[in-house]
Design a protein around this nucleic acid. Sequence first.
DNA 1: GGGGATTTGTACGTATGTATC
DNA 2: TGATACATACGTACAAATCCC
Lengths: 97, 97
Amino acid sequence: MYTEQGRGTFVGPKSAPQSPRRVPVYQQIANEIIGEIKAGAYAPNRLIPSEKTLEQRFDRAPGTIRQAVAHMRELGWVFTVPQKGTYVSKPEDWPEG
Amino acid sequence: MYTEQGRGTFVGPKSAPQSPRRVPVYQQIANEIIGEIKAGAYAPNRLIPSEKTLEQRFDRAPGTIRQAVAHMRELGWVFTVPQKGTYVSKPEDWPEG
DNA sequence: GGGGATTTGTACGTATGTATC
DNA sequence: TGATACATACGTACAAATCCC
């Protein structure tokens, strides 16, 4: 049973047996970079590769790369300083820990 | 004096006399809709116009409208249910109050 | 159940602006 | 000055979930 704001309360699983639902490309890219951050490839307060560089590495359109970076930003893994670059957040700002 | 995470601490104004910096179109659109929400044009837990409708109303590209909606979402004015639409948040979730 | 319309989500590619170095 | 880097804005296409007959 769950509630959807403004629509009422419903009974039953929200999406059947949790459909596998494909993972968007931008999330796959984000996950890969996050893995590298956790592995220590990019240190806290240090720049990750530029969006341009990531475009080439993943061979994806600018918008897709921007979405990936935005996703990591929302999760707290990185922060961006305009016209400078995107930095790895302090570990205490990382999710689940 | 101010600090930029990862770069150090600096003295002086960050951008001279705080340049007026133009307001992006997506924020202008968001501000206009937020004004209408505050004015009661769209009630809490009710749908705001679809992105398609907003495109026509503001005569802007889809991406710009999506950014405007995303902006309102980040600020807490609305929430989106995929494939259903974007709803006005409960007033207690609105910013500054 | 079927089919179509609606609506948001994802992804592409391009151009230009603006701040930083 | 020039190169780099992110921000904004445009337009297009298709996917996927929902809703309404």
